[in-house]
């Protein structure tokens, strides 16, 4: 432990779910802890805290990343999107709706991360193959084993979006 004193916090300005925010965070704080503890956005889950599970997946500048491995300070000037920012005026994103329709979860703890991975995929690739959907969530573990339905939901969402 380098030091026990409270480290100097720095100001970080970023876009969060389409809105500009400025935060004061210590350099070592992860984006995940910042979202959950500082901003109260607890939809993004902390499961392994070391980049092994994908439950903390958010989009940074449109790409899925593990927020537990991302320092909040490194997000200055970037656009961070979380599960809370997907629905528009109460209308669910097609991926969200597909998860409900296809029962693509059981306990639901991995769901926000899975959804964000698929939202990221569909922005890059409007008509993914089944294999591409599967690969897109290969970094998102689901201990309940809902994968069959997660993949089905991803394919259905792509169709609905088109």
């Amino acid at each position: 432990m380098a030091s026990q004193r409270e480290p100097a916090a720095v100001d970080v300005s970023l876009r969060l779910n389409g809105r500009d925010v400025t935060l004061r965070v210590p350099a070592h704080r992860s984006l995940l802890d910042t979202l959950r503890d500082t901003l109260g956005l607890t939809g993004t889950k902390k499961v392994c805290n070391e980049g092994d599970c994908g439950a903390c997946t958010v989009l940074v500048d449109g790409r899925p990343v593990y927020s537990c491995l991302t320092l909040a300070v490194a997000c200055a000037g970037k656009h961070v999107e979380t599960i809370e920012g997907l629905a528009r005026d109460g209308d669910l994103h097609p991926v969200q709706q597909a998860f409900i329709d296809h029962d693509a979860y059981q306990c639901g703890f991995c769901t926000p991360g899975q959804v964000m991975s698929l939202v990221g995929l569909l922005r890059e690739n409007a008509s993914p193959s089944e294999d591409e959907v599967r690969r897109a969530v290969s970094g998102n573990l689901c201990r309940c084993g809902a994968y069959t339905n997660i993949v089905a939901a991803g394919l259905a969402a792509a169709k609905a979006k088109r």
Binding site: G43, Q97, I100
Partner: peptide, 21 residues
């Protein structure tokens, strides 16, 4: 039948023990 709490799950609104503050 889709889950009656589906919306809370897919929007991140479902509060788990970990999420309590």
């Amino acid at each position: 039948r889709p889950r009656v709490d589906g919306r809370a799950r897919v929007t991140g609104a479902a509060v788990y023990t970990h999420d309590l503050h």
